[in-house]
Design a protein around this nucleic acid. Structure first.
Length: 584
DNA sequence: AAAAAAC
């Protein structure tokens, strides 16, 4: 009823006064970006999703200034900087990060936080300080080099400068590098270099069948990797296939599938194609597991094993990547790899120090919604990513926010249709979502570089989940903010999360640190805590009704697009690297 | 160590 009124007057209203400050910020950053976007016009034709080279593009100054506008945050920003400097002194031995003084653009590039890099294994190849050094050593194809250059990609990140040589020397690798530090390029660049020329090329002696496979845990992430791969591939006729029902069907023709160079897929999708005989993997020479710990946990493991076993080529190179790799998963990974090199960038299982993390006590579940509404009624930095623990809770929360007239609310979980999911992602990419409510599906790998705040509405189920969730912000050298709500019921797990905050330089109230270590019994109880499906207990809705309301949320989004009161892209970094007009 | 995601 209430929702109907909202929708009938044209969707959620935009409160200019409330968000005035943000609008001004958007405007001012746009202007300052003029010169830069001009020289990137050549890539303007690319869809917004093809947003690969963002790591090169973020001027740090804007994020710092932006934060400074919030008095409360200013002090913390300063503190963060000091901490970062302190960390450099302590652990930095990675000197390549600033080693391109001859490059004029390096002064505007954000200094990627410098991390200690440790390697373990036999005959570790030396790291490469620049992409040019990589090219000289391993003859990176010229079209790849020019793609890097064209997008202003100048200095490799830690994992790129250490990891790429290892892969280029055909070694197996387990790579652990924090969220938002460019892991994807660190494997795509070597794999595409090793493939040499596309299989469709006449002079290719590639043999028949796909030669590289990348596995990722969610459709959205596979899609994102595919887009990044397409960018590197520009200028050559690579056949890079994002696996879906539709593309799998097109591969029924053997002459088509024999010319495919790279497949990017979720595990089950690929296993299904394997079983139906629509794909063979005996020619695969490079197998990459992204988000490796997720891929190796119990639900995915057997599927991943099937794929690995189907890759029977003698020279199969395997590599696994993640920001987190718990001991159990690492053991499984190491057993899969032969003579592996293990690379750790930064401190294992520690988020980036430039994410300002905090914990907020909310007593019980019903108190969360008012807390969030209050938070969103004050100026905040959109877009905000809000994590809920289940699909119904995500739906219900998004619906509550819409009913309370929060502007530009969006929802994304795996219970939605493929198209709904794709639409939600592209609204997010275009900066049209201000508050994105989601489940774990968005927790890993997704690179919305504009995300400035993460709110854990529901407490994360594990330290790994926490690290990946908050890693959706603070990407590629930018600052970010992460707030985690906790209730009395979450107490057993609170301390382990608090330790993560401490390790990465955020403050934790004294009393939380004094909590006893959770006992095994308590942990078991944790699992038994069942949260209500509806976020607002006063408004319980049935499943079918929830879906209807979700559609209404989507409807209100469409309406708003017409009204166009929202800045198309919330900040200059997005504007620069997404190009001008996204091709839907 | 548990929910979500994978078709």
């Amino acid at each position: 009823m209430e929702a109907f009124h909202l929708l009938s007057r044209g969707g959620v209203q935009f409160d200019k006064h409330k968000y005035n400050k943000d609008v001004q910020l958007f405007n001012s950053t746009r202007g300052s970006d003029k010169g830069k976007s001009a020289d990137r016009s050549a890539v303007g034709q690319l869809p917004a999703e093809l947003d690969f080279f963002k790591y090169a593009a973020a001027p740090e100054s804007t994020s710092t200034k932006r934060k400074a506008s919030e008095a409360g945050d200013a002090g913390r920003t300063e503190k963060k900087k000091k901490q970062r400097q302190g960390e450099d002194r302590d652990v930095d031995e990675d000197e390549d990060a600033e080693s391109a003084p001859e490059d004029p653009s390096s002064s505007t590039s954000p200094p990627m936080p410098r991390h200690k890099v440790t390697t373990k294994g036999s005959n570790v190849p030396p790291h490469a300080e620049t992409f040019e050094a990589l090219r000289e050593r391993y003859s990176i194809p010229s079209h790849i080099m020019s793609n890097l250059k064209e997008y202003g990609y100048t200095v490799p990140t830690g994992i790129q400068s250490y990891g790429a040589p290892i892969l280029l020397e055909s070694r197996d690798m387990a790579a652990i590098s924090p969220t938002g530090t460019g892991k994807t390029l660190s494997y795509l660049l070597p794999v595409m270099t090793a493939l040499g020329v596309p299989a469709s090329s006449a002079k290719s002696g590639a043999g028949a069948g796909v030669r590289a496979v990348v596995l990722a845990p969610t459709r959205e992430l596979a899609h994102q990797i595919h887009n990044e791969c397409l960018k590197l591939a520009q200028g050559r006729k690579w056949r890079i296939v994002l696996f879906s029902k539709a593309t799998a069907a097109t591969l029924a023709d053997k002459s088509v599938r024999d010319k495919v160079d790279i497949i990017i897929s979720t595990p089950l999708r690929l296993v299904a194609a394997l079983n139906s005989g629509h794909v063979e993997l005996h020619n695969v020479r490079h197998l990459i597991l992204d988000e490796a710990d997720r891929m190796l946990d119990s639900e995915f493991l057997s599927q991943v094993r099937e794929v690995v076993d189907a890759c029977t080529h003698d020279n199969l190179q395997k590599a696994v990547f993640s920001a987190t790799l718990p001991a159990g998963a690492e053991k499984i990974a190491m057993d899969m790899l032969r003579d592996p090199i293990r690379v750790v960038v930064g401190l294992k299982d520690t988020p980036l120090p430039l994410i300002a993390q905090s914990l907020t006590y909310v007593a019980d579940d019903p108190s969360k919604l008012p807390t969030l509404l209050t938070y969103l009624s004050q100026p905040y930095n959109p877009p905000v990513l809000v994590f809920a623990s289940s699909q119904p809770r995500a739906t219900s929360l998004a619906e509550e926010l819409v009913l309370h007239a929060v502007p530009n609310v969006d929802c994304l979980h795996a219970g939605m249709t493929k198209k709904e999911r794709e639409d939600a992602v592209s609204r997010m990419r275009r900066g049209e979502s201000w508050v994105m409510v989601s489940t774990e599906v968005m927790a890993r790998g997704m690179d919305f570089k504009g995300v400035r705040e993460v709110i854990n509405y529901d407490f994360p189920q594990s330290v790994q989940s926490y690290i990946h969730r908050i890693g959706r912000t603070g990407r590629a050298g930018r600052e970010g903010k992460a707030i985690t709500y906790f209730t009395d019921e979450d107490a057993p797990y609170l301390k382990s999360i608090a330790n993560v905050l401490l390790q990465s330089g955020s403050q934790v109230p004294e009393w939380i640190l004094k909590l006893p270590k959770p006992s095994k019994l308590k942990r078991k109880q944790m699992g038994k805590v069942k949260r209500a499906e509806a976020v607002n207990p006063a408004r319980r809705v049935g499943r079918s009704e929830a879906i209807k309301k979700r559609d209404m949320i989507a409807g209100s989004q469409r309406r708003k697009e017409r009204v166009r009161m929202v800045p198309e892209v919330p900040q200059e970094e997005d504007r620069r690297s997404t190009g001008e007009e996204p091709v839907s």
